[in-house]
Amino acid sequence: MQTEWTHQTVLLNEAVQALSINPDGHYVDATFGRGGHSRAVLERLSPRGRLTVFDKDPQAIAEAQALAAADARVALRHEGFRALGALGAGSVDGVLMDLGVSSPQLDDPSRGFSFRHEGPLDMRMDTTRGQSVAEWLETVPVSTLAEIIRDYGEERFAAPIAKAIDRRRQERGAFRTTRELAEVVAGAVKTREPGKDPATRTFQALRIFINAELEELQAALEASLTVLKAGGRLVVISFHSLEDRMVKQFMARHSRTVVDRRAPFAEPAPTLLCDVQRLMPSEAEVQGNPRARSAVMRMATRSAVGVSA
């Protein structure tokens, strides 16, 4: 009997409220997951409204297919949200991106995302394509591995971890399970913050890299400027500092008035985003769902400048 892995959507009502939904509008859930945000959006749409959902995860897609079969307003795309731009310029009233890993992905040992469970060392969001972490670790140079663990995991022990991984694969061959990797990492990390597993940052780094998460996010953010209508809303929920920093800098860059110093009397470049805001989960939500504690929601409105009709 297959276990049903549940997911508690973070900032559910706040995110949907931030979209400022027009009942007849077209909205995008860029990371369907288990559909919590999507279902809440659909409750606010009229029969003329539309919802497009993206996801790479085959299990998420199966759930989205069931929703699309029951509701003609839903259009499904089995691909990463870097493909957002394919929806067409000025065609969308709001884009929601709920980043990171869902609870079913973390809790299901067969997905290999978590160091807390013994499972195959996979970590792919889309298990139908690409290399698993285990396959990638077989050939990656030590210097490259250390760089990825440092940059994507913000891990100060990246070099000794990479050397320990290399030693282990030379002595005993390829890594196959999450526990094998977690044990090697733990042996290389000398100190760690109280309550945090030594493997946390390394597993984060490898997951981000193998799924090209930051590249996907950057492409989707840029595409949002094209697909959003004037007055359309961009809402992004991040769960670690690398993502949040990218979103923060993107919104700041496109909401700031820029004057060309070479032509100080020329009109400043128009801002593409306005009404930038940030929201954190309430204490009550964090107590009820500990995975919400690191969430940061940032939102902005698409300016009228440069929007295609």
Rank of each mutant, 00 (worst) to 15 (best):
R253M: 01
N211P: 05
W136C: 05
S102W: 10
D197I: 00
V236F: 01
C274W: 09
L19R: 00
Q218K: 11
S20G: 10
D122Y: 07
G119F: 03
L42F: 12
L228H: 06
G33Y: 05
A75T: 13
A199M: 03
D29V: 07
K190D: 02
R116Q: 15
E216S: 02
Q131L: 14
V53E: 03
A220S: 15
V236P: 09
I21P: 09
S224E: 02
F239Y: 15
R262F: 08
K190V: 15
F265S: 11
S110Y: 04
Q2T: 06
R150M: 01
F239G: 09
A83K: 03
V133Q: 08
G88Q: 07
S303F: 02
L42S: 12
E4Y: 10
G306E: 13
V227G: 04
A15W: 00
Q17T: 10
V28Q: 09
A83Q: 13
R169G: 04
F175R: 13
G88M: 10
G130R: 03
R201G: 01
F113A: 12
A86G: 14
R77V: 10
S20W: 05
T178Y: 06
R39C: 04
V142W: 01
D122M: 08
P58L: 07
S282C: 04
A68V: 01
L76Q: 10
D275R: 06
D55P: 00
L272Q: 06
E138V: 12
E155H: 01
G112R: 03
R253W: 07
E222L: 11
S38D: 11
S255A: 10
D197H: 15
T6V: 13
H117K: 15
Q249H: 09
R73C: 03
V185A: 05
R201E: 04
Q2W: 12
D244A: 06
P141I: 05
E171R: 15
T301R: 15
F54D: 12
R192A: 14
S114I: 10
D122V: 07
V258E: 14
F239M: 00
M251G: 06
S132G: 04
Q277H: 09
Q287C: 04
H7T: 11
S255E: 04
A134L: 03
Q17E: 15
R129P: 02
H7N: 13
G288Y: 04
D29C: 04
T177D: 11
D107F: 08
V227D: 04
P109D: 09
R156W: 08
L51E: 11
T139V: 07
K56H: 03
S255F: 06
Q59E: 15
G306L: 09
P47Y: 10
T191N: 11
E283N: 02
V133G: 11
A223R: 10
P160I: 02
A295K: 02
E283K: 13
T257Y: 03
F32N: 12
S38P: 10
S238T: 14
G187Y: 00
Q218E: 15
D108G: 11
E14G: 00
H240D: 06
E222F: 06
A300G: 09
Q131Y: 02
D126C: 10
L99M: 04
G85D: 13
F209L: 07
R253E: 08
R192V: 09
W136T: 01
A230D: 00
F203L: 03
A83W: 05
F81G: 00
G288D: 11
G90L: 09
G112P: 07
G231Y: 02
